[in-house]
Design a protein around this nucleic acid. Sequence first.
RNA 1: GGAGAGAUGCCUGAGAGGCCGAAAGGAACAGUUUGCUAAACUGUCGUACGAGUCAAAUCGUACCGAGGGUUCGAAUCCCUCUCUCUCCGCCA
Length: 423
Amino acid sequence: MLQLQYIRDNKEEVIARLSVKNIDAKSSIEKILEIDSDRRKVQNELDTLLNEANILAKQIGELMKAGKKAEAEDMKNRSGALKETAKKLEDTLKGHEDDLQKTLVLLPNIPYKLVPKGKTPEENETVFTHGEIPILPQTAQPHWDLITKYDLIDFELGVKITGAGFPVYKNRGARLQRALINFFLDRATAAGYMEIQPPILVNEASGFGTGQLPDKEGQMYHVGVDNLYLIPTAEVPITNLYRDVILKASQLPVKNCGYTPCFRREAGAWGAHVRGLNRLHQFDKVEIVQLAHPDNSYAILEEMREYVAGILKELELPFRILRLCGGDMSFASAMTYDLEVYSGAQKRWLEVSSVSNFESFQSNRLKLRFKEAEGKPQLAHTLNGSALALPRIVAALLENNQTENGIRIPKALVPYTGFEMIN
RNA sequence: GGAGAGAUGCCUGAGAGGCCGAAAGGAACAGUUUGCUAAACUGUCGUACGAGUCAAAUCGUACCGAGGGUUCGAAUCCCUCUCUCUCCGCCA
């Protein structure tokens, strides 16, 4: 949620920058400012009225003590009248506040100045590439065939016990999952991220805090009886750890990481390009989260991007980094880098990580603030990134590393898998 | 799932219709003292919104789990909800 004060002070700039996300915000912004000015007017009236009532109440108390009952009665009547007017004003104020909130919550975050204008993924900007695109022999197989060949994952069994998009990992496929999770967590903790094991069901307030609710509830699985949501990413529980918290400036940056399964309904997203591990309802991911001082959150974004790139290098996967254009960015993000690995047999780039700076957009909803030694609390910046999402990493590893003798495990991973080849 | 107790500031904890935005202690921060550490002493020590200002100072309003109600006046009385704790049952 954007800060009201910022919109008030920078109306034209906000409209101009939202247009980079292809949003015409002129009318909503004007509506917001109008409601806001009404709201302030009403609050002013109400405060004056309540002030009178408070003074009156004190005087009545004193008159009662002094035994001047008749005078007190007279004042009681006046107080009663004040109260009635106050009640009406309170309702009006509440109405304005609700309207304001409703409109404000629907405005997406303002893109950072480096974000290119654009509507489709084709307009994303490639800022970095690493590694050679592998040229595989004609006989090279896509990962879904390799998975069957080496009996690593059983999709049909998943359908049987749950449904499509819920794979069952087996044998060295299961072991590879565990290896990757441990590898990712070890790297993250070594880089100073404190490991968290959060709940994977969250309440409504948490869903709201990170921006999944009220707008995108369709993407989450909902447990109706207890009104809880299965998390689509560890970002939700981990960032919400700091909801309603005021940190000391000296505690920044806060660095957390966590492994969780992630659940996505992906309603309507099924179709082409989703075979095998490309898109799932349940998958594993290690997430990194940072809470940063606004002065250096973009330096931290770069640091996080470098960190994820480093892991991909260790895994010996060719990858590229995209700076997402306005139209491809998420609702809450101010700037996002996508990291994509090249999957040799599918001959496609697969998104394996998304690293974003949300600036104060989430923290405004979360009331996540920090305080300098002097001065008022201010909103912290939140950032997060996948480091990494497993399924597409597995897909690329299988496809790129296939040989006649089996699939080669990258060196960095061997201590975790305990085997060098899948064969 | 059954029975009972409770929810007050960063923490502990008083407060039981007006003198309470809230005692006291602790923590934290700043200063004094000190060769250093410790101790002692002094001070500061909630948040939001509004008014005000270049910015402050300052002023107003609200907030004692949440939402309603009673009253001229509510942390305090009443109702509803949520959560926590204890005991019993069940259980990885």
